[in-house]
Nucleic acid binder design. Structure first.
Length: 477
DNA sequence: ATGTAC
């Protein structure tokens, strides 16, 4: 594929053939050299062929191959002429990351880390098909997915501050349970408060580096503080919503005479009935995921209080933020001097609104949105803050993680003969894992170096480094 | 990601 280097961190796929706009990939030279051979670049170009796409098909430095759209991709579509696509969101609707910080310091937690890891592993249901979280009737489930995260708080599973520090207050208003199939509802009914599998995790960490003390202080982060990070999504419910609407969209694309260069780009006009209905279902799944992470935060808080024999005030566990990184949202952005209503798809990309954005909670409005970027299970995670560059270039978006370099099968092969649990212990990480193969699939070598991914968005002026967190304990589904 | 293939 032909690529034109714009500067040290930006590469253009020129607009050719059926592409309506160019592609822009954020990466350093080493990443780009590896990427150039990848199918993911072709996927960036494919997305650029979809009707109503605005400005460019974008990709963050953690880009890798995905279903139709690349993971790490950002694409915005005009609300009148554009489309919405389940492949542009991903199977795990509102998969996202939540970060909380405690009053505990590393010296207090270090000696108890094995107990804490065991207790978290026991305290949160995990693995494929995990249930045993909250069990709901379908009627109550419909109420929950209409309300979002505040539903959990009403039931005593968190407090108002948790909601305030959740993207969009953990609620998409367009949610309509009538757009969600009985099958999807049934799959979700017993899964609130469950971790799931794959790259979903619970991570206890220690803040080891602060890059921007003023912003870090605002986020409640200081060197030595113990953190809790959760990564999970909408479980079986979101997966079923995606499946259901992929089938619908395949037909809709034909009906609307949308030419698809890849069937996996199935989509429909965002402002017509099928597109609206998918958006209503997606909003339900997004709300489900926020409740799910809220319930898990509550479970983890209780585990911490038990293990350290502390009350809520002494533990002082409070939310930093909760972000979605698989989502489509209706947002207003300035494009070439004109304010436009857009449907922004972020698939493996995090919202990164800059200081001053009206959608940010009051506590962070003047410093920018926290952007949570987990790395692999040993390297660490970053907290960034959204910058003006994101508003100008990426529809207010940044990277979401390290990004895979090895497929799951390749990772399993590479892990043969390795003792990952003792290796991780040797690196100071207490690893607890359900699936026998999960540790192998999630081994550090399966991911890009999160340090260099973050460096790209930092230097490109999209999101700036605030703090780095080192993992002490990791629970994988 | 996922009742990892209807």
């Amino acid at each position: 594929m032909e690529l034109r280097q714009i500067d040290d961190y930006r590469w253009e796929i020129p607009q050719t053939g059926a592409m309506r706009v160019p592609g822009i990939i954020y990466a350093d030279a080493a990443m780009m050299a590896a990427l150039q051979k990848e199918e993911a670049c072709r996927q960036v170009a494919n997305v650029a062929t979809l009707p109503g796409i605005v400005k460019a098909s974008l990709a963050m430095p953690d880009i890798h191959w995905g279903y139709g759209f690349p993971i790490g991709g950002v694409a915005a579509f005009d609300m009148d002429e554009g489309v919405i696509s389940p492949g542009g969101v991903g199977y795990d609707i509102n998969c996202g990351v939540r970060l909380a910080v405690t009053k505990l310091f590393a010296d207090e937690v270090g000696p108890r880390i094995a107990d804490l890891a065991d207790a978290l592993y026991a305290g949160v249901p995990c693995g494929v098909g995990s249930t045993g979280g909250i069990r709901l009737t379908v009627a109550e489930e419909k109420k929950a997915i209409s309300q979002g995260a505040s539903w959990a708080v009403k039931r005593g599973l968190g407090d108002a501050d948790d909601i305030d520090r959740t993207e969009d207050c953990g609620h998409m208003a367009e949610a309509d349970p009538e757009a969600v199939s009985d099958n999807a509802l049934e799959r979700g009914r017993r899964q609130l408060g469950t971790l799931g599998s794959g790259n979903h995790f619970i991570e206890v960490g220690e803040v080891v580096e602060v890059f921007d003390p003023a912003v870090a202080a605002r986020f409640g982060l200081a060197e030595g503080r113990i953190t809790l990070m959760l990564h999970s999504g909408s479980r079986g419910l979101g997966h079923q919503v995606c499946d259901d609407y992929l089938a619908v969209m395949a037909k809709e694309a034909r009906k609307s005479n949308i030419e698809l260069v890849d069937r996996q780009l199935a989509c429909a006009p965002v402002n017509a009935s099928a597109g609206r209905r998918y958006f209503s279902a997606l909003a339900c799944a997004a709300n489900f995921a926020w409740i799910n992470r809220q319930v898990m935060l509550h479970l983890c808080r209780e585990v911490f209080m038990r293990v350290f024999a502390k009350g809520p005030a002494d533990l002082g566990m409070r939310m930093v933020y909760d972000v979605c990184h698989n989502i489509a949202k209706k947002e207003r952005h300035e494009v070439d001097g004109r304010v436009r209503d857009l449907c922004v798809h972020r698939k493996g990309a995090t919202r990164a609104f800059a200081p001053g954005h009206p959608d940010l909670c009051a506590a962070y409005r003047d410093v920018g949105q926290p952007v949570l970027v987990p790395g692999d299970m040993a390297t660490g995670s970053y907290v960034l803050a959204g910058c003006d560059g994101a508003m100008a270039e990426t529809f207010g978006s940044a990277c979401h993680g390290a990004g895979r370099v090895l497929s799951r099968t390749a990772a399993k092969k590479a892990a043969r003969g390795r003792e990952l649990f003792s290796e991780m212990a040797g690196r100071g990480v207490a690893l607890r894992c359900q699936g026998r193969t999960t540790a192998a699939e999630e081994m550090p070598e399966a991911y890009k170096d999160v340090n260099s991914v973050v460096e790209v968005v930092h230097r490109a002026g999209i999101a700036k480094k605030v703090a780095k967190i080192r993992p002490l304990a990791v629970v994988k589904g």
